[in-house]
């Protein structure tokens, strides 16, 4: 059975949501990894959950990246191990340099917590391989610093390598300026590293897992991962 690790930093607050989503909705084996642990062996995928690691001091994710487990995580990534960073997890991956770019404060400065539509831009990754290109997903965001930045050369590289997996769009699937909820460069909601084993995304799929709670589009991302890893 699949074994998933969910890293817990001081200040993580979506760790239990991720645990619940995987254990009780996806029915896979999950364990928490305290940030001081240094053993990630036997895991099929590691999730860095959302929250406010180290109180977002200095910059979101800037301090978490120096936690002991991050060294092991980097080794895991180098060996091709899949890592999914959600929200604060995305910010930590950026600070660690595992994914290019940086996060600015939302363009309009407000913390935004609401359901948004994202469009699947590429199916060339384990995270999206069982989804359809241009498919829409309704998934909530919940962040104050999700305004993705990368310079012009960087965005071109992301596009050329097909690293953009999700963009913010409106309910009709159009990338209108209003749909770009936080001001991100090129509407970016989720991207991978060049090798495509590391995903960073601002929306919270683990909060959209059960129709009973209003929405379940996030489940499709986890289904794709488990199917691709053939471990479900």
């Amino acid at each position: 059975m699949a074994k998933v690790g969910v890293i817990v930093f001081p200040g993580s607050n979506c760790d239990h949501d991720a645990y619940h989503a995987l254990k009780y909705v996806m029915n896979v084996d999950v364990k928490f990894l305290w940030h001081k642990e240094t053993d990630v062996s036997g895991l099929d995928i590691i999730i860095i959950p959302g929250g406010f690691s180290y109180g977002d001091y200095l910059r979101s994710g800037a301090i978490a990246r120096f936690s002991p487990i991050m060294q092991e995580l980097i080794e895991f990534v180098k060996k091709g191990g899949p890592v999914m960073g959600i929200c604060n997890g995305f910010q930590i991956l950026l600070e660690a340099g595992l994914i290019p770019g940086a996060m600015r404060h939302n363009e309009k400065l407000k913390f935004i917590c609401k359901d948004v539509h994202i469009r699947v831009e590429s199916t060339q990754s384990i995270y999206t391989s069982s989804l359809q290109k241009d498919q829409l997903l309704k998934i909530p965001i919940s962040h104050g610093e999700g305004n993705y930045y990368i310079d012009n050369d960087g965005i071109k590289e992301l596009q050329d390598n097909d690293q953009v997996l999700f963009r913010y769009v409106n309910a009709h699937g159009d990338a209108t300026p209003e749909a770009n909820i936080n001001g991100s460069v090129d509407h970016i909601a989720g991207i991978t590293n060049k090798q495509k084993n590391v995903l960073g995304m601002m929306p919270h799929p683990e909060r959209a897992m059960e129709q009973l709670l209003g929405k379940e589009d996030g489940k499709q991302i986890f289904e794709s991962i488990l199917q691709a890893l053939a471990i479900s």
Binding site: L58, A62, L94, A102
Partner: peptide, 8 residues
């Protein structure tokens, strides 16, 4: 290394 993020 830490205090500034030179990406931005």
């Amino acid at each position: 290394k830490l205090l500034a993020n030179e990406v931005m």
